[in-house]
Write a protein that binds this DNA or RNA. Structure first.
Length: 180
DNA sequence: TAGGCCATCTGGTCCT
DNA sequence: AGGACCAGATGGCCTA
């Protein structure tokens, strides 16, 4: 890691610690120290800067961990998607698109195989559409599989198409990013 | 070398 | 106040 969290710069580590008259800039000044306020105020500003820097370092660390968790989740998603061993690792956007299309394909397969059971199971759960942006369920019901679509998609098309092409429902939206 | 992808930093916003 | 989330900026790495 190029940037590990720096040692704490909070009040414990601050040179102006406990007992220092101006450790807190909001504390009232005593009469004797009035004339030297600017000098001590400068130190107080330094403390504020140190605190801000420390907060930034901690926030960066949290953000890094958050992104690592996100990447771990993406890796887990990649692992359950069917890809050929020789395939290059899916990019993030490819992983999301592929997962979306794969779920769609599985749903369609299930619907065609067991229409009665499928429809019954989805009376209580609105899972008929993988895309909540679809204007209605009829949109989804009228969809076709990207793998069996006659005009632009066919089983002979490459896996790349399956990964990279948004579903018909997605095309109702302006971009794939609306799914995310 | 341009373009794509990625990791990281950063400041803003919202929430607890 | 501090944490989570987000989007923009930036720089590095890789590939066609």
């Amino acid at each position: 890691m190029p940037c590990s969290p720096a040692p704490s710069a909070t009040s414990e580590g601050c040179p102006m610690g406990e007992g220092f008259p101006f450790a807190n800039a909001r504390e009232p000044l005593c009469k004797k120290q009035k004339g030297k306020r600017t000098r001590f105020q400068a130190k107080s500003d330094l403390t504020v800067i140190k605190q801000k820097k420390n907060r930034r370092i901690k926030a960066n660390d949290r953000e890094r961990n958050r992104m690592h968790n996100l990447n771990s989740a993406l890796d887990a998603l990649r692992n359950v998607l069917p890809t050929f061993p020789d395939d290059a690792k899916l990019t993030k956007i490819e992983t999301l698109r592929f997962a979306h299309n794969y779920i769609w394909a599985l749903s369609e397969t299930l619907r065609m195989a067991e229409p009665g059971i499928y429809n019954l199971a989805h009376q209580d759960m609105d899972l008929t559409s993988p895309n909540s942006n679809c204007s209605s369920s009829s949109d989804w019901e009228s969809l076709y599989s990207p793998l069996s679509q006659s005009d632009s998609h066919s089983p002979t098309h490459s896996m790349d198409d399956f990964i990279s092409q948004p579903l018909p429902c997605a095309r109702h939206s302006t971009s794939f990013s609306e799914f995310l």
